[in-house]
Design a protein around this nucleic acid. Sequence first.
DNA 1: GACGACCACTCGTCCGATCAAGTGAGTATC
DNA 2: GATACTCACTTGATCGGACGAGTGGTCGTC
Lengths: 243, 243
Amino acid sequence: MSNLEFAPPKYAQIVQAIQTRIEDGTYPVGTMLPSEARLVREFGSGRSTVVRALQILSMQGWIEREHGRGSFVKGVPAHGAERSHAGASAFDAPENVGDTTVTAAGRAAAPAVVAEALNVPENSPLIRRQRVILDEDSPSELVTLWFPLDIASGTDLGDTGVIAIGAREHLQALKQVRPARITERLSARLATAEERRLLATEEGAPVLAILATVLNAENAPIAVADIVLPGDLHELEDSYPAT
Amino acid sequence: MSNLEFAPPKYAQIVQAIQTRIEDGTYPVGTMLPSEARLVREFGSGRSTVVRALQILSMQGWIEREHGRGSFVKGVPAHGAERSHAGASAFDAPENVGDTTVTAAGRAAAPAVVAEALNVPENSPLIRRQRVILDEDSPSELVTLWFPLDIASGTDLGDTGVIAIGAREHLQALKQVRPARITERLSARLATAEERRLLATEEGAPVLAILATVLNAENAPIAVADIVLPGDLHELEDSYPAT
DNA sequence: GACGACCACTCGTCCGATCAAGTGAGTATC
DNA sequence: GATACTCACTTGATCGGACGAGTGGTCGTC
């Protein structure tokens, strides 16, 4: 149109135009879109180009195409789910920020739940790395990372020194591990004595406990994070399409 | 090939073939795919068809296409997140299944958190609908649904009679409401006296509390579900790609 | 050796055409 | 009135060509 300016490709322009019209109600939800032939005339492009735009809109969920009938407006596609991924953060958070203290690092015997998640016998030796995060000078989060010995060997994960990048990045920089997926198990329970000590909470205080397992592409466990959040300090948020 | 059997379109066959080859390692991650010209020769189809297949694979995250260089294998795309959507279930679960008891239905004043979620003043009159779900004869879940009066009017949500379909379906069948999104806030706390009575738990028992708000496309709240799960009976699962 | 011209190869976009197949309304037939 | 046919209109799939543009190598010149 205007100049030789950076013009997006025609098909993308058509996609954009139709999205706008759906958003502003020019094409109301449920109604039929102009036919391909019509759009070809309106936009002055070949049918293949119009069809390409419609296919993209269809794949993104804006419209529905029905063979022999027409294309119909479905509406603005809902975003995917959004949530706080406590597990991912546990492995990605660096330790050199002000309010993080590494409280333990080194060998330790696997507790039952961790052993189960890592698929090793209970009390097997593992590398444990534990930190407490303060919020306004009072402890607000206790994170314990657990790694199999072979995965942690050759890394600094078992040393008490601060790791300035996230554990995941540290691991990936030194070893051939490829995290593919994280699964989390979340429950409410009372804090254990050890947790009460580290978090400075009262007896009988409820906590949100998250056990996050990092898996590689073959679904083999790479690491486990045990995250303990005092109930009165934390709220997790989650948001997803309603259909 | 074989007969006149139901053959999927060529482009879909090409998509499938390449997906299989990525999965079984014929095309290892990171390597370059055969060029379009090569694939055209191999599959005996036009370039447009091959390109269409490659574009689909690219949009689905299997490959990455680089102008002037080639197409490269990214790997099997990770699934989206999967989790139990307690909020959605609260509105979709029917009440006529064996272990559900409607314990209250009718007008009630809005508690603070519910009022805030529904964007009304505290103690405003609302329709409340409460049920307890038993697991093996002991209470395992307490769900309280809250609706603004105008939304619930003309429905059976305020009556104590059992609603055989989910509340959402009931509502949508009778009124013009379109749920678009659900947001959840999750926390661990101790059960209140009222909750202990309904759930038959001890004093000091931790519970997982979920406050789910149903929003329409304009982000206006339609309903709220207050879900209380005794901590010793429930574990929520969550799983998502690690990148 | 550094630089640039050239060239083969790659993907990106667009076009117009053909044939197929599903839909729905109108029409002719019974 | 019910049925079958026709026809206009719709999307679905595919083809082959054309031009543009980014990449990376070779090769010649300086």
